[in-house]
Design a protein around this nucleic acid. Sequence first.
DNA 1: CGGGCGTTTGAATCAAATCAATTGGAGTGG
DNA 2: CCACTCCAATTGATTTGATTCAAACGCCCG
Lengths: 272, 272
Amino acid sequence: MLTAQTLQNSSPVPAPRLPIAEAVLAGATVRVERLPEALVDDGHGQAIASTLKLLHDVLQPTRRLVRAGDLLYRAGERFDCLHVLNSGMVKVVKSTADGREQVVALKFRGDWLGLDGIAHGVYGCDGMAMDTGEVWAVRYDHLMTSFAQHPALLTALHGAMSMEISRERESLVSICTLPADARVADFLRFIAESMSVRGMRTDQITLRMTRAEIGNYLGLTLESVSRALSRRARDNIIAFAEKGRRELRIPDVRALSAFVQRCVMPESVILQ
Amino acid sequence: MLTAQTLQNSSPVPAPRLPIAEAVLAGATVRVERLPEALVDDGHGQAIASTLKLLHDVLQPTRRLVRAGDLLYRAGERFDCLHVLNSGMVKVVKSTADGREQVVALKFRGDWLGLDGIAHGVYGCDGMAMDTGEVWAVRYDHLMTSFAQHPALLTALHGAMSMEISRERESLVSICTLPADARVADFLRFIAESMSVRGMRTDQITLRMTRAEIGNYLGLTLESVSRALSRRARDNIIAFAEKGRRELRIPDVRALSAFVQRCVMPESVILQ
DNA sequence: CGGGCGTTTGAATCAAATCAATTGGAGTGG
DNA sequence: CCACTCCAATTGATTTGATTCAAACGCCCG
């Protein structure tokens, strides 16, 4: 099984590109019969829920249950389907010919995956579950034929693509303009905000990623991430759970933003 | 780290989001068609040319001549129009509330601009011309109504968005995984490739950006960019024109890729 | 209980940023 | 035409933030 731990320190030996293993992709392929209405819907969580409902009602996407480490799709595979995350968390990883690997995106409930495959007819990245979850596969050609009857689906698709572009740009801004500690803080803020938008609690979050994966995503080493987290715990901007450094409390998300600001501001400005 | 010319921030005027798709597409029949042969890139800009022709013929976009420094649109402005570049070069700049500025994309002939505005109804970045050029403004609602009669336009839009996502990810990979010198080399490779795809010569290119702008785009200082370029000139991977360090010759683009490879490989691998 | 990961922390090193000085063109105006 | 300014670019010296190297700890699981 291809796990994530070797991302940061992996030797740059190109991994052999296996023919798409059904074994790896093996997740139950079932039909969706009922939408879990369990999740809290406040604010934009409502929009996500209704888009999912629309997708479900109109296209009856094939549902797949995945567990941490499962590959949803692989770079190089022929593009037929877009994937929509109903629950769980997925990382999108881009690999280069020379063996570098980069986590380029993190996806949550309601997010679309595989959009980069539209232009080239082939996926450009791997999508890997970081958690148990449910992924819906939507045939792109079915989606295209549905627009006439259900223009809201076109709106949803364009919205998803547009937001992906925006998010990727924010990622770039963070990586290019922030020092290590601020980058990590901004990452936590992003995670918290992603939870918040989906109506989940933000004060108690469980990181589904190793320090190495976070570091990879942020362009840092795992040690730098660890140090940054430790320092933020020291000044009470975050707190670790008693056991396990994987789940942490964020008493006040605004404190994270404030910290990022402080990192960016020259001290002359602080005087005011 | 800041670009030389400071962009004055426009006041972000929130705009109501329009349910365009529902209104205009209701009842229309959109057929999914195979990618027209003409749109398949043959390396000489045919695909770009025919998409531009289609856009021109169907939508009669308003054309605008711009010069270096002109703003095509601003972050915070209400989103009505997508912009398509017929000629010239444009940088897309994202500004943060605390005054950081980041060049997040570079656009060339055939590229679409303003796609990040679709989701929020407001542009997320500034688009600024770096060169004289011609920009076509396409009303998004007009574009949406055109899909029924001209499904190729839908294909083109989706292709543009998909490619934008892909390109932004490549940018991220370069920034996160490459050392400074390799990043600059990869940037030159990207520029050369962008020219090549559009049927322009790649051996003699004129940078329309200052070292500071390049550095900003790559997450480096202007000094690091300058040093990297000087070193590359020293080992004959590039050459400067007699006068003006802005235009340079790239005798062999593959030498740039090879250099990037060498930066990434540990010397142990080179032994083989 | 012991092995394997993931994580933390310290010390040393290094790559890139910062600071600083100089050069080189482009444009302006006497 | 030259002197002058302004800005971009280069290059060197120094500093620094992040990486690398290394050791130890904690947790999960067979």
